[in-house]
């Protein structure tokens, strides 16, 4: 079974993000980049499926300039078999990303596409859904459990929905996007890192894919969240009510 996993390069969630003074983007100096944590979970699931079946192929795909090889190399070190780098140096909105991915899916013909439910940088949460629509494939988003049928023709996916769990099933091929609790991704072992060096990263130019990449969306401005003031401790309920009334003006 061939599983395609998408990998996006995003700022490390541990780094402090600073918005540029003109609001046009974020300061990128001194930022460390990692694989989007939800993509890492998707990759872990793909590796577990392959390990369980004892056969198959896990293929990574990332869109971006050459620096994303670092994230692809990390994914290969975790255990993916090969990777595709779609070279592109323009900013893409979710629809353009989905259109490029659709071309890659047509070319690769995977039975399953595993993606993160969202990327932690722009939190768009739509590439997976758009890709499913473009391909006309079934989709299960926010997966917290994935069970492949014995004949490998279908999956059952448990989703975390408001107030509980929902289990849905569909026949492959299809698309699954991962939620946080799907699994705990492994580290790349050192032998894995050494082996990754010899694995293929195929480069294709986005421009050659005949996908419509024209932007439908522009980012007008970014603003940092307002700074929260330090809290204070109060002695009595009366004091609290007084402050809520006079200072916070909420009652």
């Amino acid at each position: 079974m061939k599983v395609l996993v998408t990998v996006k390069r995003v700022p490390d969630p541990e780094t402090t993000i600073r918005v540029k003074s003109d609001g046009s983007g974020i300061e990128t100096d001194n930022i460390k980049y990692v694989i989007n944590p939800f993509d890492e979970i998707a990759l872990e699931e793909a590796l577990r499926i392959k390990e369980k079946l004892g056969a198959g192929e896990v293929v990574l795909v990332s869109i971006g300039d050459s620096v994303v090889t670092e994230q692809l190399r990390t994914g290969l070190a975790m255990g993916a078999d090969r990777a595709i780098l779609v070279g592109c140096d323009q900013d893409l909105d979710s629809l353009a990303v989905a259109r490029i991915l659709a071309k890659i899916v047509e070319d690769e013909g995977p039975q399953l596409v595993l993606m993160g439910k969202q990327a932690i940088d722009d939190d768009a949460n739509q590439a997976g859904q758009m890709l499913a629509a473009l391909l006309g494939w079934p989709q299960a988003t926010f997966a917290s459990e994935v069970v492949l049928s014995d004949d490998q023709q279908a999956v059952k996916v448990t989703r975390e929905v408001d107030g509980g769990l929902e289990t849905i099933g569909f026949a492959l091929p299809g698309i699954i996007t991962s939620d946080l609790r799907l699994n705990e991704p492994r580290y790349a072992s050192l032998p894995g890192i050494m082996k990754a060096r010899k694995k293929e990263i195929k480069e294709v130019a986005a421009a050659d894919l005949d996908a419509d990449m024209s932007p439908r969306l522009t980012i007008n401005s970014l603003e940092p969240p307002t700074q929260k003031e330090a809290g204070k401790k109060v002695e009595t309920v009366e004091e609290l009510i007084g402050l809520l009334h006079d200072e916070a003006k909420v009652i």
Binding site: V34, R73, T74, A77, S189, I193, M194
Partner: peptide, 15 residues
């Protein structure tokens, strides 16, 4: 190199 930095990331996560 890139491999060293990937390894650094793994050890850092482990620690």
């Amino acid at each position: 190199t890139e491999d060293h930095e990937i390894f650094r990331e793994q050890v850092r996560n482990f620690v």
